[in-house]
Amino acid sequence: MLDRIFVTFSVCFLVLLAVVVVFGDFIQPHDPLLQNFAVRDQGPSSTYWLGTDDFGRDVFSRILEGSRLSMTVGLVSPLIAAIIGITMGTSAAYFGGWPERIVTRLTDMMMSFDPLLLGVLVVALLGPGILNLSIAISFALIPSFIRLSRASALAVRQEAYVDAAIAMGRPSYSTIVRHVLPNISGPLVVMTTLWIGTAIRLEATLSFIGLGAQPPAPSWGNIVRYGVQNIFGSPLPALFAGLAITLTVLSFNILGDALRDRLDPDRTVR
């Protein structure tokens, strides 16, 4: 029962977040970039719901604006990683031979790095910025997609219906798309959802250490970063941006767990 409530809250929160991301321009009460030194470091008020930062910018508007960047990176990076990783993983499992060995070894190599470290490495190579950040996060998530899709596809590859499809003259790519992918989609959907949470966290972390979104553009990560630098002026920006990150990641994780329970065929329906 408690599970249900959590899931409901998470879904509601994520829907709300989607509205904020899409219609942000109409919802933000103030211009998130407008500086006003007359109202520096203020607490919450009817004008500034979550107070202002040390440039006198509205924290609420900045968090809403920051959600766009964080969510874009958080959604796009895992999706790119999923497309590349699943393509490589299923093809490797299906065709086997030396391409599979190369892909598996590369994956093992990449898995030995922490995603954060890989992200830092890529940004260090390409330079900071939103596009490079997305590339870095995608790159960091690809190996786990390869690994999961390859393992699942290997199991499905053994199924008689795959042989039957080949025996009916179906070409390889079509066998993968119509017979292999639909049968491994469950765990992959769950993993994508869980990695969205991780991607948001990674974006925040990399922005926090200055490798992500560059000021003045707000993202949750750099709101926390500059908020912490000015924590004695006003703790509110760092606090609320941190809260936004926490709630979003938590919601995606709860959603992922719920999906896993739903899609797991071994679990009896309650």
Binding site: E159, A160, Y161, D163, A164, A165, R178, P182, N183
Partner: peptide, 8 residues
Amino acid sequence: MTALNPVM
């Protein structure tokens, strides 16, 4: 039982 794709 297994020679037909279960999701098709």
